[in-house]
Amino acid sequence: MSKEKNIVVGCDIGGAHLKIARAEDGRIVEALTLATPIWLGLDRLIDAARAARRLFAGSRLNVFTMTGELSDIFPSREAGIASLLSIVTEHFPGKSLIYAGRSGFVAPDKATALAADVASANWHASAAFVAKHAGDTLFVDMGSTTTDLLVTQGGRVVHDGYTDAERLATGELVYTGFTRSALIGIASAAPVKGAMSPLMNEYFASIADVHRILSVLDENDDKQPAADGQAKTVAGSIARLARMVGRDASDLTPPEWRELARWFSEQQLRTVHDAAFRVAGRLAGDSAAPVVGAGIGRWQIRRLAARMERPFVDFADLIAASDDARSEASSAAPAAALALLAQDMD
């Protein structure tokens, strides 16, 4: 008689995306990211849970982390956690546990009382997995909206902040990501034809447009509509970028727009680089400690590692996974980490 598979599903409920990773016998076999803009209604998350139901087939345990409680659909983080826990209980099949970071895994009915630990703890799950499997590192996860930077040392996660407010202050959380960040949040002025042009204080374009123009964006990773709701093409992205500097696409040549896009991506990298130097201070003198990169922004993190003169290790190379699932699992690192961390739990 064949042994029954040990199936655990990890889920990261964000404000913009639901990330899911299915592990069978300690190996990620499928990972998936679905657009769930819950600021438009919680039905977006419920619909995604239904669409992904097949990933939960046969699972003995589902484990959840979340950042969606920050969505402005909720009056507070605690209210957001309570609402998301209700959806987990009602709309996700099977037994569930909630990841409460420093408090470990807890039952859903205990999680509300640990709201301060549950809130936005997805970074802790990924970093805990890296600490266990990669030793001393600078772990950097750039998603669609934010970038997490943590040191792992001596088999544990070393951090100065825990809450979002604390981590923003320490540089361990930088509010910039590979697709959703508005360009007005990257800079207030940009070089156009040799002069610094102030930017329009409007959401005319996102960093996804920049990375599309530079041909480094996987279109699968840009799951939200463009700022103007128009085509997500290079021409469309150039038109949106042009509006940011009060121009039309025809005002500059394609190479000139590409140079402007390169400048914006560089500005984003500089912001992350500054935070990385602060956070990596604990690794001073250990030049062999690598940068471990996760998330859809791994292209940017590779550049960061080169600037810091440190080796780069993809989170995908630390996990047991099928070839088809490996890259997507790295993009959904918190979900994959949870599924693997919980493999031996009862």
Rank of each mutant, 00 (worst) to 15 (best):
K5V: 03
N6A: 02
D12A: 02
G15C: 00
A16C: 02
A16L: 01
A21R: 08
E24W: 02
A31Y: 09
G41W: 05
I46T: 13
A48H: 03
R50A: 15
R54K: 08
G58W: 13
N62H: 12
T65H: 04
D72H: 01
I73L: 12
S83P: 03
K95A: 14
V106C: 12
P108G: 11
D109Q: 13
A115N: 10
A115S: 15
W123D: 10
A134L: 03
G135K: 00
S144N: 07
T145E: 02
T147Y: 11
L149E: 03
L150Y: 15
G155K: 03
Y162N: 04
D164G: 03
L183G: 09
L183I: 13
S188A: 14
A190F: 06
K193R: 14
K193V: 08
M200S: 14
S206K: 05
I213V: 15
K223N: 11
P225D: 10
P225H: 08
G229A: 12
V234L: 06
L241T: 06
W257C: 07
R258M: 09
L260P: 06
H273G: 00
A275P: 07
A284I: 03
V292G: 08
A294N: 03
W299A: 14
A306R: 14
D317M: 00
S322Q: 04
D324K: 11
S331D: 10
A337S: 15
L340D: 11
M345P: 00
D346S: 15
